[in-house]
């Protein structure tokens, strides 16, 4: 009853907390050409754990912004304009804060829960694994 597979169907969080689950979901998203949304989600979690006194943290914040938000990537398309503006202003003013990507991550997560996660649970790649 508490097998990894039963946990995968419980929630997106439990899927992403499992190594095999996260790997399989990532493979699915690569096929669907939206793997950037998952990488962004993990990047937000990694960023939140970084030390704000470390100069690397500022460089990572900029890298996340450039890679996922500044351009017209799939992540940028799923974010509200106000959310993108908020992050852009923080980057420009060098207001680097652990929570600066929280709202963006929530928006991406909600989108994944409603779309990609549901599709994953009925996908061939998932059913074959099961």
């Amino acid at each position: 009853p508490d097998s990894p597979l039963s946990r995968w169907t419980k929630s997106l969080h439990s899927l992403l907390g499992d190594q095999d689950g996260a790997f399989l979901f990532r493979t699915f998203l690569e096929r669907e050409k939206c793997v950037d949304t998952l990488d962004f989600w993990f990047a937000c979690n990694g960023f939140r754990q970084m030390d704000l006194k470390d100069t690397k943290t500022q460089r990572v914040a900029k890298a996340i912004y450039k890679r996922y938000i500044e351009n017209n990537s799939i992540v940028a398309k799923q974010l509200k304009p106000a959310t993108k503006t908020f992050i852009r202003d923080n980057i420009k003013k060098l207001h680097i804060d652990s929570a600066m990507f929280d709202q963006a991550q929530t928006e991406i997560q909600t989108n994944m829960e409603e779309n990609a996660y549901q599709m994953f649970l009925t996908s061939d790649i998932y059913l074959e694994y099961v």
Binding site: L16, D18, Q19, G21, C44, G46, Q49, R59, V60, A63
Partner: peptide, 20 residues
Amino acid sequence: MDSEDDLLQKCITSAMPRQR
């Protein structure tokens, strides 16, 4: 010094689940 891409990759990897 690591490139921004390397730092970003490390950040992503650090947040991924580890083997149970």
